[in-house]
Design a protein around this nucleic acid. Structure first.
Lengths: 351, 351
DNA sequence: TTGTATGCGTTATCAA
DNA sequence: TTGATAACGCATACAA
């Protein structure tokens, strides 16, 4: 019950292997009569066409591109920002008849890097910063594109990002202009084992980042921008386990139930901010009236929720990332897309 | 600027290719001193480990599994049922350190079958019926599992499904018991070019199915069950362009704005049913009071919406599909999982 | 512990 | 129009 190959078909028909190969790939290279016989015979023998892997080895191409997430794949399929990016990426790939492979490479588990090494792909895109997985892909000689910030010191891959510092700064300045001087920043955990669900001074949070991630993290510039934009405000941080609406809710509860409640909450993502708004609703508090809430991304739900946020062109990020991978000759390989501060009802001047 | 291989490294070090290979794959086969030298040298030369494709050809395995959708990939990532299935599937694959490839093979475009032929994978799962893509994969000798119904006449692949006829029958009987005798069924388009957004007799819809899909479609048994369960009720069909909430909304508008409004609407999926409920809300109609609405799947949103539906174990479908692919020895390969009628507030006795 | 020969299935190249 | 040969990069089987 061994596998049938072109050789088998060729032998039975008394023709050369090349003839069989050509019958499948280059109809113009044989008489259509012979071609018909080959195809016919092949079918009868249960040979269904050239083997994909062998063909890949021969050609050096797979026509497949990997998408790497820093999170579990369940996150990749449920986070609205991630889904929007992935959809746009997939659409371009589909148009070009290219396939996509979905990989998870958590910085926390080095073994997961093996997936990158073993992926038969022509390029790698990451909805993440320029982390080890990307570097590994480049070491293999594969083109890479990443779409979040967080450049490592030796950054060298292509990217499609926004100016996260400037964007953060706009959010910060916005709140500052509204008179907010007492702010809590909501952020997902930055390293495994980090203490979560407690409010801590900004300096403590920053120190952890420095110690455990060499000071680099995808949201680094974003945070810096926010803090700088806020100017002399008092900023503390609540760290959540993950980046999700539920986590934002829990964090929000923590902040809202304090006696010394801040006048504004900024989250590094809309999903976290929406969770905070959920916590507000649960307590009968109205965002923009009782407390200001700001997010980041402008996911669809932010519109109906009236969330002030930074709109970033997610779909463009995904689309362009795909285009860069597909066209090795594309000129500009380090692209910064525009963002926009969207002021909605969730932020108001401090009373 | 040609690619570096084990041969190059071996040559430089004056050792055999096998030694280099072993240095990477079987540390026990050489002295750790030599191994160190090899790895070191390899790194310096820019060789980052065995080539994935060559290794795949050699071993005959890729450790990658394909997921095939009958729809565009944007659908795969946005439909809640699809996302839940995919998440469960991906979780199992991730646990086993296997990778997943996402493919779209629309029955309407035969060219898309090429993707199946060219995919370097060890197996194929489909969140779809047993359609051409699955058959193609089997022709290649790959194991397949499909998770929707709609068996073709020559069905032969493994599957994980629910008893759609029985499930449909329960929904139908439920409405019948409530006294509904005038029902509209909402269904997505079954073949390209089908006339949509018009209400048509069940017979007309059925005839189209017969003509254009040889009478087979993933929801076939489901529809039959519903119709049989409804007994002597008058059933007509509204066909939507796609399976989405927005499409359901449009269809709902159509049904609700008729002078001769039915007493109940059944959709073949929750997303369509939720869309109908949106249309109700827009008109100030209360589901369960002014009109009954039933769905299928029990997606998360159905709970808060109070939608009567059939709960099917999506996550189990995804999980088991993955397990079947990963373990070629697994005994039971044609699995029917239990379903459950969930009665909520959207269905009530006819006034 | 290390090396040699061989083949995985295909296709480009060149010759007939 | 068709066929023989080689090579893609690696790892199994076996020999040294």
């Amino acid at each position: 019950m061994t596998r049938i190959t072109q050789r088998d078909v060729a032998k039975v028909l008394g023709v050369s292997v090349m003839t069989v190969s050509n019958a499948f790939n280059r109809p113009d290279q044989l008489s259509s009569e012979l071609r018909g016989r080959v195809l016919d015979r092949a079918k009868k023998m249960g040979y269904s066409g050239p083997d994909a892997i062998a063909r890949h080895l021969r050609s050096g191409k797979t026509n497949t591109y990997a998408v790497v997430f820093e999170e579990n794949l369940s996150y990749a399929f449920s986070d609205p920002f991630s889904v929007a990016w992935l959809t746009a990426f997939a659409e371009v790939m589909q148009q070009h008849r290219a396939s996509i492979m979905i990989l998870s490479a958590r910085a926390a588990e080095p073994e997961s890097l093996a997936a990158i090494q073993d992926a038969a792909v022509d390029g790698v895109a990451g909805l993440c910063g320029d982390q080890p997985a990307m570097a590994r892909a480049r070491a293999r000689g594969l083109p890479t594109v990443y779409c979040s910030m967080g450049e490592t010191p030796d950054m060298s891959g292509d990217y499609v990002v926004i100016d996260d510092y400037a964007a953060g700064h706009e959010i910060g300045s916005h709140l500052r202009r509204l008179g907010h001087r007492h702010i809590v920043l909501i952020h997902e955990a930055v390293y495994p084992g980090q203490s979560v669900w407690t409010e801590q001074p900004l300096e403590v949070f920053a120190r952890g980042l420095e110690n455990y991630r060499d000071g680099f993290y995808p949201t680094l510039h974003r945070i810096r921008g926010i803090v700088d934009g806020l100017g002399d405000a008092k900023v503390s941080v609540v760290v959540t386990e993950v980046n999700s609406r539920v986590a934002g809710h829990t964090a929000g509860a923590l902040v809202l139930d304090r006696k010394d409640r801040p006048t504004a909450v900024v989250a590094v993502s809309d999903v976290l901010a929406l969770g905070v708004m959920d916590a507000c609703a649960q307590r009968g508090l109205v965002p923009g009236v009782d407390i200001s809430v700001a997010g980041f991304d402008d996911v669809p739900e932010a519109v109906t929720a009236g969330l002030t946020t930074i709109r970033q062109p997610v779909r463009d990020k995904g689309r362009i990332a795909a285009e860069l991978l597909l066209d090795p000759e594309r000129p500009e390989r380090r692209i910064t897309l525009p963002h926009e501060l969207i002021v909605r009802s969730s932020t108001r001047p401090v009373a």
